[in-house]
Each structure stands twice: as structure tokens, then as C-alpha cells.
Simulated scan of single mutants.
Amino acid sequence: MNSRIYYNSLLRQARPLIAFTILAIGLYSCTTSAGSESIGAPPPQELPVLTLTNTAAVTYQEFSATIEGTVNVELRPQVDGYLEKIYVDEGAYVTKGQLLFKINDRSYASQFTTAEATAHAAQANMEKAAIELNRIRPLVQNNVVSDVQLKAAQASYEAAKASFEQAQSATNNAGISLGYTLIKAPVSGYIGRIPFKAGSLVGRGEALPLTVLSEVNNVYAYFSMSESDFLQFTSHTTGKTVDEKIKGLPPVELMLADKSIYTEKGKVEMVQGQFDKSMGTISFRAVFANANGILRSGNTGKVRIPHTNAAVLAVPQQATYELQDKVYVFTVADSNKVVSKPIGIAGTSGVYYLVDKGLNAGETIVFTGLDRLRDGAVIRPLPLSADSLRKAMPL
């Protein structure tokens, strides 16, 4: 009995606490529900989008090239001797006929003087034989002396004449050798490396030339095409023959080693007659004007052959992303949901990819903010004008 009274007393004391707990739970539930309704789902993010249209664009095929002067002359000594003087420095510009080197000429000058003296003596002997012949000829006619003497005088004159001609030839050869001691520029151009110093013994057997003289008012850019590139060139370029196709090519550009474009455009002039079997390539030659001497023999770069595309889809590169060696864009589908698509790239033009697969004209793609997107995400599109975009970012 006392236990029941004690239990009832505890229950009466706990009722206010139970009621308060139930009330607190109810208030918390209402507050949570109201808070959820007030926050709600986040609104779609606003992102710029671009509707694609066909446009004309120029693409380039690039081929590694080496530059050479139109004339590269190896200057080699034609006579042996000590290099007495060097009149120019490496890298200097020289004009045709300018004196460049001098080989010690004392021995050659002596040989020339000796040859001249021998020639003068031979000339004197020839003149003496001619006088004797002219003296005997009328005597034979008058039967004063026999015909045998005339024939002997004639033979002496012919022998003297031959000796004189031989001496003249020796004099000319000595003069040529003496002239070879002075080495002059055969063309105007730039002096290359000079591996010898004054006092060096040089001669015709030297492996190295005295220098290489490059005429670079115009330069040649040599580049090669693979067999597949060459077949594409022959099938896509107008003309019946290869020569006609080369003449029909537009002016080409030269990209220098620092990625800048050379100011002058060039012209493809010729293609070799056969493929290199070891490399599987065929060589072309383009010529570029070089009046300012910016290009030198030994420069490298890339020859860029332009191709005009009448109607292609130009997609800004910043509107794409790469994944596992593929390039993707986010297209805007129904209900403004985005869907990723891989695209095929036919080439580049400026900051644009030229797309030939995966997209069609009229489709809309997300321009920026791709790093915050996932397939199926809903966005609020902010349309951009393709024309105004190309004015700001030209092809």
C-alpha cells in the first residue's frame, strides 16, 4: 500500500516534465520543417552558353623545316701554303669580289716570274727561227740552196713555236696558282665559321673549308611530307600534274623557333622526284624573301600550308576539356540540362578547334564554368552572340 502511494506520488511529479519534453519535441519539429521550407533547393547556376553556327576558317598543315641560303659556297684553298692574312670576321656581310683570305705567295710569285722568263726566251727563239725561215725561202726559190735546208728551217721554226706555246701555258698556270693565293667572295653573303687562324698551313687536302659563304637575300626552307600527307596533297590540290598542283598552292607561312610568324610569306617551288626509302618521306622546297637578313643558314622552323574551309564549326578551346586523350564539350539539352559529348577535331585556327564530328550547327554548348559541371546538371543559360565572340576572339 505504501509502495503504490509512493509510485503515484512520483508519477504526479513527473507529469510536468513529460509534458514539457513532448512540447519541446513538437516545437523543434515545426522549426526544422519551417527552416527546410525557407532554405529550399539551390537555384541553377548561371553560365554563358554559345549556339554553334557554320563559319569559314583557315587551317594550317605544319611541317618541320630547315633553312638554307639560296647559295651556300664552301671556300677551299686551291693551293698549299700558310694562311697569311684573314681580312674578314665570322658573321660579316661581304660583297661579291671582296678579298677574304691571302695565302703566302712568295713561292708562287717566284714560279710565275720564272715561267714568264722562260716564255720570253722561247718567244725569242721562235722569232729567230722565223727570221731564218724567211731568209732561206727566197734562196730556195732561186735554186741557191737546196729544198732540204728550207724544210730544216721550217722544222726549227715549228719546234721554237711549240716551245713558246708551252712556255706560255706554263706562265698561265703559274699566274693562276698565284691568283689562287688571294681568295675572294664569289657571291655576296654572310661569312660562316672560320676554323683557321693566320699562320695555319692550308691546302687542297684539308677536310674543312676556310669558311662557308651564304647568300641569304632569299632563303630556302626544306620540309618533308609523309606518304599519306603527300597523297592527301595530290588528291586535294587542284591541277593535273604535281608541278601544276605546286603552282596552285597559296603562299605559305614560316613559324620560327620562338613560335612567331615570319613577316614574309613564301612560295613552294619544287618537290623531289622520289621518296626517301629510309624515312618514307618526300622533300619540298619553299623560298622566302630575306632582305633584312633575319634568317640565316641553319635556322629551323615550321612551314605552314593554309587550307580554306568554307563551312566548319568553330568551337572556342576554352569551351572544351580533355579526358583520357579525348576532347569534350557540355551541350545544353532539354530543361537546360547539360550533357558531355566527345568531339572530333579537324584542325585549329587561332584559339578555336575546328570540329568535324560530335556536334552539329544549332547545338548550344557551355562556354565557361565547365569545372563546376556534371552530366545532368541544370543551368540557367546566358546566351552569347557567336559574331560578337569572334570579333573579340578572331579565328
Rank of each mutant, 00 (worst) to 15 (best):
residue 2 N to M: 01
residue 9 S to T: 11
residue 11 L to D: 12
residue 18 I to M: 00
residue 18 I to L: 10
residue 21 T to L: 13
residue 23 L to T: 15
residue 27 L to H: 00
residue 29 S to R: 08
residue 36 S to H: 15
residue 38 S to I: 15
residue 40 G to D: 04
residue 59 T to L: 13
residue 64 S to V: 14
residue 68 E to N: 11
residue 69 G to R: 02
residue 74 E to C: 03
residue 79 V to C: 04
residue 81 G to F: 05
residue 93 Y to R: 12
residue 94 V to A: 01
residue 102 K to L: 12
residue 105 D to K: 15
residue 105 D to L: 11
residue 110 S to Q: 15
residue 111 Q to H: 12
residue 111 Q to I: 02
residue 115 A to E: 14
residue 116 E to V: 08
residue 119 A to M: 14
residue 137 R to H: 14
residue 140 V to F: 01
residue 141 Q to I: 03
residue 141 Q to V: 08
residue 144 V to M: 07
residue 145 V to N: 00
residue 147 D to T: 10
residue 148 V to N: 03
residue 149 Q to T: 14
residue 156 S to H: 11
residue 165 E to Q: 10
residue 166 Q to M: 04
residue 168 Q to K: 10
residue 174 A to V: 08
residue 175 G to A: 14
residue 182 L to R: 06
residue 184 K to S: 06
residue 185 A to P: 11
residue 196 F to P: 00
residue 198 A to K: 13
residue 199 G to D: 03
residue 210 L to M: 06
residue 212 V to P: 05
residue 217 N to R: 10
residue 219 V to A: 00
residue 219 V to G: 00
residue 220 Y to K: 06
residue 221 A to Q: 10
residue 223 F to V: 06
residue 223 F to Y: 08
residue 224 S to Q: 14
residue 230 F to T: 08
residue 231 L to S: 14
residue 232 Q to L: 08
residue 233 F to M: 13
residue 235 S to A: 11
residue 239 G to D: 12
residue 240 K to P: 06
residue 241 T to G: 03
residue 241 T to W: 06
residue 246 I to F: 00
residue 250 P to T: 05
residue 250 P to W: 04
residue 253 E to H: 10
residue 259 K to L: 12
residue 263 T to C: 02
residue 267 K to P: 00
residue 272 Q to W: 10
residue 273 G to T: 11
residue 281 T to D: 02
residue 285 R to V: 08
residue 287 V to K: 04
residue 290 N to H: 00
residue 293 G to C: 00
residue 301 G to M: 07
residue 302 K to H: 10
residue 306 P to W: 08
residue 311 A to Q: 14
residue 318 Q to A: 13
residue 319 A to H: 03
residue 329 V to T: 07
residue 330 F to A: 02
residue 334 D to A: 12
residue 342 P to L: 12
residue 344 G to K: 06
residue 344 G to R: 09
residue 348 T to V: 10
residue 351 V to E: 13
residue 358 G to P: 01
residue 358 G to D: 05
residue 364 T to Q: 09
residue 365 I to M: 06
residue 365 I to R: 00
residue 365 I to E: 03
residue 368 T to I: 05
residue 376 G to C: 07
residue 377 A to Q: 09
residue 380 R to A: 09
residue 382 L to W: 01
residue 385 S to W: 14
residue 388 S to R: 11
residue 389 L to Y: 13
residue 392 A to R: 13
residue 394 P to D: 08
residue 394 P to S: 04
